[in-house]
Structures are given as structure tokens and as C-alpha cells.
């Protein structure tokens, strides 16, 4: 039963996943893994929304989750297309080797 699990557990898990995602974006060098970490961040947001939505008895949060999922799919498609375009020019997907532009 959903009521058996308190809200704090959902929020705690979501914040841990969000932190893992953030650290992944900052630390990892492979562009594909960076995008996976971004997906982790977005999914932790979804978990928070669903948790609050059930707790408050308001479906608006669940509606938001649908939009987040749709946008995340679009963003991943664009992101991978850009990685592919870069790979054709430079034969790498490691973000630290992408360094023509710097101050």
C-alpha cells in the first residue's frame, strides 16, 4: 500500500538520486554518461512530484510528471544528435577533449 510508506522516504530517495545525477554531470567525461546523469536528475524530480502529488491528493503534480517525461525524451534525442554531429567532426565523445572554444 502507498500509505504504508511515509512521504519522507520518497523525498529522501529523490534527493539522493538528484545528488548522484548532479555529481555524475560534474565528474563524468563521457557525453553519453553525462546525459544519463541528467536523466537521473529529471527522474528524481518526477519522484518528488509524484510523492507530493499523492500526499496532497492533487493530481497537478502527476500532470507535471508527464510533461517532464515528454520533454526529457525530446531533450535526449536532441542531445544524442548533437553528440553524433560532434563525433563526425572530431571522433570523440569525451567532453574534456572538446576544447576548441575557451577563454
Amino acid at each position: 500500500m502507498i500509505n504504508a510508506i511515509p512521504l519522507e522516504y520518497y523525498l529522501g530517495l529523490a534527493s539522493i538520486i538528484f545528488l548522484i545525477g548532479t555529481v555524475g554531470v560534474l565528474v563524468r567525461r563521457n557525453a553519453i554518461i553525462v546525459f544519463m546523469s541528467i536523466e537521473l536528475m529529471l527522474n528524481s524530480v518526477n519522484l518528488t512530484f509524484v510523492g507530493f502529488s499523492t500526499y496532497l491528493g492533487d493530481t497537478a503534480g502527476q500532470v507535471f510528471v508527464f510533461f517532464v517525461m515528454a520533454v526529457a525524451a525530446a531533450e535526449a534525442a536532441i542531445g544524442l544528435a548533437i553528440v553524433l554531429a560532434l563525433f563526425r567532426n572530431k571522433q570523440t565523445i569525451y567532453v574534456d577533449e572538446v576544447n576548441v572554444l575557451k577563454w
Binding site: A31, I78, I82, V83, A85, L86, V95, V98, V100, L101
Partner: peptide, 10 residues
């Protein structure tokens, strides 16, 4: 350009 775009999307 593709490099700029990758940085922008991330």
C-alpha cells in the same frame, strides 16, 4: 558550432 551546441545542451 557542434561543440558550442553540445555545451549549450548540457
Amino acid at each position: 558550432a557542434s561543440e558550442a551546441s553540445l555545451k549549450y545542451v548540457i
